[in-house]
Amino acid sequence: MYLDLYIFAALLVLGFFFGRLAEKKHFKSIIEREKKYRQLLTFSGRLLPPDLDRADAELVGGNVVISIDYFKRIAAGLRSIVGGRVTTYESLLERARREAILRMKEAAIAKGATMVVNVKLETSSITKGKGQQIGCVEVYAYGTALSPILA
C-alpha cells in the first residue's frame, strides 16, 4: 500500500521534470527551425498562385509521434473529472503539429522546393490500450511541394 504511494509520487515527479525538460527543449528547437525555414512558403490553399512559373509538383510529408509523460496523464485524468481546457495535452499537440510541418518542410527543402501548397494535417492517437488511455499522439503533415523548373 505504501509502496504504491511512493511509486506513484516518484513517477509523478519524474514525469514532471523530464516531461517539462523535453517540452522546453522541443519548443526552443521548433522556434529556431521555424525561423530557419521561413523562406519556404507553405499554404493550405489547394490552388496555385496564379502568376506561378512552371514547377515540378511532388508529395512531401512529415510525421511525428510524441508520447505524453506520467505527469501530463495524471493532470489530464484529474481535468477530465471536472472538465475544462486540458492544457497539458494542448501543448503536446501544439508541439506535434509544428514539428510535423517542420519535418515536411525539411523534406521539401531536400527536394529543392520553394513552396508547399495544399498543406493538410492528420492527427491520430496511437495507444488506446488499457483503460482507453491515450498514450501518445501522431501528427502527419503533407502537401504538394513545388520546385521551379530550371530552364
Partner: peptide, 19 residues
C-alpha cells in the same frame, strides 16, 4: 467517482485519499 476520469492513475490518486 474515479470512473469519470479516463486515466486509471487518477483512480489511484482518489483511492489513496479515500484510504
Amino acid at each position: 467517482i474515479s470512473g469519470f476520469g479516463d486515466s486509471s492513475m487518477s483512480h489511484q490518486l482518489i483511492g489513496n485519499v479515500g484510504l
